[in-house]
């Protein structure tokens, strides 16, 4: 017990460092995937068939294969197969490759949620905007976007909660995120080795962060309750 209390501050400090990297990946993914998903959804809904087919193909592949494989391919392929290690070395290179993989993967999931949201706004809203002389982009941004956002908050919350936990997959390319930081104490880190509990302890970080995310998204949902 005494040993545990001695180890605890050291472990927590190391896990905090890992958690910062986890949070960075989480926010970068959201920041990239939320707008990219919208572009992809426009692509799949495009009346220009080649574009629609191409984006649907991409969405199919990305959603149809494990994120872990995508991470490995994106991280290793350029260097190993083409001899062009585009990501650069070290932690920043790993972070960059992980960010690209996560953004692409989540953008594809988001795009399908957006598509559902956009298509669920009644056609009468478009028509009302058109007869009032609005442009297509005015109709989208001034009329349909908020109605769509209101409809997609619940399914988006689901994805965002999954993302909190999915960040741990970046461990596979040795990104020094939360799991990596916890696992390090098994083989030895900060003078502690053979300790398995720090890795289990990481679960609390995910749980608490997801608690905060759930509350925030719940507030957003409530905030949009002013209209139907």
């Amino acid at each position: 017990m005494e040993l545990f209390l001695d180890q605890l501050p050291i472990v927590i400090q190391a896990l905090n460092v890992g958690f910062v990297q986890t949070l960075k990946l989480f926010f970068v993914t959201l920041l990239g995937a939320i707008p990219l998903g919208l572009l992809i959804s426009f692509g799949t809904m495009s009346r220009f068939k080649p574009l629609s087919w191409l984006t649907k193909l991409i969405v199919w592949i990305i959603r149809g294969t494990p994120l872990m494989i995508q991470l490995l391919i994106i991280y290793f392929f350029p260097g190993l197969v083409f001899g062009v290690p585009i990501w650069g070395g070290g932690e920043s290179g790993r972070f960059l490759a992980a960010s690209v993989s996560f953004i692409l993967n989540y953008a594809c999931y988001f795009s399908e949620i957006y598509r559902g949201g956009i298509q669920s706004v009644p056609i009468g809203q478009d028509e009302a905007g058109l007869v009032l002389g609005m442009t297509k982009s005015q109709i989208f941004f001034k009329i349909k976007l908020l109605q769509m956002v209101k409809r997609i908050v619940p399914p988006m919350s689901n994805e965002i909660i999954t993302l909190v936990k999915d960040t741990s997959l970046a461990r596979i390319v040795a990104l020094q995120e939360l799991i990596w930081a916890g696992q390090a104490f098994m083989k030895g880190s900060h003078g502690i080795s053979g300790a398995i509990w720090p890795m289990f302890f990481t679960a609390f970080y995910y749980l608490i962060w997801n608690g905060i995310v759930t509350v925030l998204l719940g507030r957003l949902e409530k905030k949009l309750d002013y209209f139907q």
Binding site: G124, Q125, E127, V131, I143, Q147, Q228
Partner: peptide, 20 residues
């Protein structure tokens, strides 16, 4: 056509007000 539409107004059966 966008400008020409402005010669006409249209009131719909289902109102189509903007809910937000």
């Amino acid at each position: 056509i966008r400008k020409k539409r402005l010669h006409f107004g249209l009131v719909f059966q289902s109102f189509n007000l903007f809910p937000q």
